[in-house]
């Protein structure tokens, strides 16, 4: 059965590229344009992994992470943070919020795909 991935990102062109990459890997993809929508989609779409932009409008990434981590049903969800800010401090902050990986923009598509694959092994 296919793995589901939620792309939470507000920059349309980045969404396009991510969507393309994830589909290529035969993941089921859903897109959220802001924090609120991301939370709704997590509830409805039940993704296995979320590609989460740090600077989402309408709900802070902190709020999204907290909600995900508090919900026992979402225990298994992996979170990969995407951010244009690459300082160590910000990476540490993201990981502390509960991210499984932190990817700095601009990213290498190959590395990103590798990371997603690593987090979503075929056999569960």
């Amino acid at each position: 059965m296919g793995r589901r991935i939620l792309i939470a990102e507000d920059e349309p062109n980045i969404v396009t590229s991510l969507e393309f990459l994830m589909r290529k890997c035969e993941y089921e993809v859903c897109v959220a344009r802001d924090g609120e929508e991301a939370l709704e989609q997590i509830e409805a779409f039940r993704p296995h992994l979320v590609l989460l932009d740090v600077m989402l409008p309408r709900k802070s990434v902190f709020e999204v992470c907290r909600r995900v981590r508090e919900d026992p049903r979402c225990e298994a969800i992996r979170i990969v943070m995407l951010s244009a800010r690459g300082r160590d401090k910000e990476i540490a902050k993201g990981l502390a919020l509960g991210a499984d990986a932190y990817v700095t923009k601009p990213f290498s598509t190959r590395d990103l795909v590798a990371k997603v694959r690593e987090l979503l092994p075929e056999s569960v």
Binding site: I14, S17, L21, P106, T109
Partner: peptide, 9 residues
Amino acid sequence: RTPLTSIRA
């Protein structure tokens, strides 16, 4: 970085 991200991707 934002436009660069799209361009590189």
